[in-house]
Simulated assay, not measured.
Amino acid sequence: MDDFVQVSQLWPLIAYSAAALAVVAAMLALPRFLSGQRPPGRYTGSPFESGVVPVGDIHVRLAVQYYPVALFFVIFDLEAIFIYAWAVAFREAGWPGYVEMLTFILVLLAALFYLCRSGALDWRTRRQRSQDAYFKH
């Protein structure tokens, strides 16, 4: 029986889960009660910003190249969090942790080098690249 966790040891987890559920329920319920539930007005369904009625198309088209760059940014940003956590625990990790982080950073640099060499971070169109190649010669 010593291998199994006692229910009395789980009360902090249960209390935390209950508190998290209560916060989520409050965040979902309070706006409904505080809004006053007015009947829909004349312009309720129309999109606007700062009271100005939009003119033209409200949809913004982004270049396809934006999405991979945004994804790479998120990925490399998460790696920065790992490096920060390692820096906080630097003394406890010792030399093995240093070697592991150095390996991790080298893999990141290799990935960044690959992305640069493969053109994944190049925003120029094919036409612009061909013009650059034409003017270089």
Rank of each mutant, 00 (worst) to 15 (best):
L78D: 14
Q65P: 04
L108Q: 13
I81A: 04
E49F: 13
A70G: 04
I58K: 07
A25G: 08
S17D: 07
D57W: 02
A20M: 09
I81T: 09
E92W: 01
A87D: 06
I58T: 10
M27P: 04
V53F: 15
F82E: 04
V64G: 08
A93V: 03
P96C: 01
Y66Q: 03
E49D: 14
W86N: 03
R91Q: 02
L28V: 06
T44C: 11
R91H: 01
Y43Q: 03
L28T: 02
A26F: 15
F76N: 14
Y98K: 02
P31R: 05
I81C: 03
F48N: 13
E92I: 00
A29H: 05
M27D: 02
L112F: 09
P68G: 03
S17R: 05
I83E: 07
R61D: 14
F33N: 03
F76E: 10
T103D: 00
V99E: 00
F48M: 13
Q65M: 07
A26L: 14
D57F: 01
E100A: 10
Q65E: 15
P40A: 14
I58V: 15
E49H: 09
P40R: 06
G51C: 00
A19G: 05
F113G: 11
Y43R: 08
T44V: 12
A29I: 15
L108Y: 05
I81D: 10
R61K: 10
G51M: 03
A19W: 07
L106T: 05
L115T: 10
L30V: 15
Y43C: 02
Y114V: 15
F33S: 11
V64Y: 09
A18K: 04
L108P: 00
I105F: 08
F73Q: 03
W86F: 11
L71M: 12
L115C: 06
E100V: 11
A63P: 05
L34E: 12
Y98D: 00
A26T: 08
W86M: 02
L106W: 06
G56N: 11
S35P: 08
L108R: 11
E79P: 02
A87K: 11
G56F: 04
G56L: 04
G51F: 00
L109K: 12
L108H: 08
L115R: 07
S50N: 08
Y16T: 13
E79S: 13
R117D: 13
E92A: 00
A22M: 06
F113T: 10
Y84I: 08
E49T: 06
F104G: 03
V53E: 13
P96Q: 01
A29E: 05
Y98E: 01
V60W: 13
M101H: 05
V99W: 00
E100Y: 02
A20I: 14
A22V: 01
A87L: 15
T44H: 11
L102H: 10
V60A: 12
A29Y: 13
L109V: 15
G41C: 05
Y84D: 02
R117M: 09
F104K: 06
A20S: 08
L109N: 04
V55E: 15
A80G: 15
V24Y: 06
I75E: 15
V74E: 12
D57Q: 04
D77T: 09
F72T: 02
D57M: 01
A29N: 08
Y114F: 14
Y84F: 12
A87M: 12
Y98L: 03
V64C: 08
G36V: 11
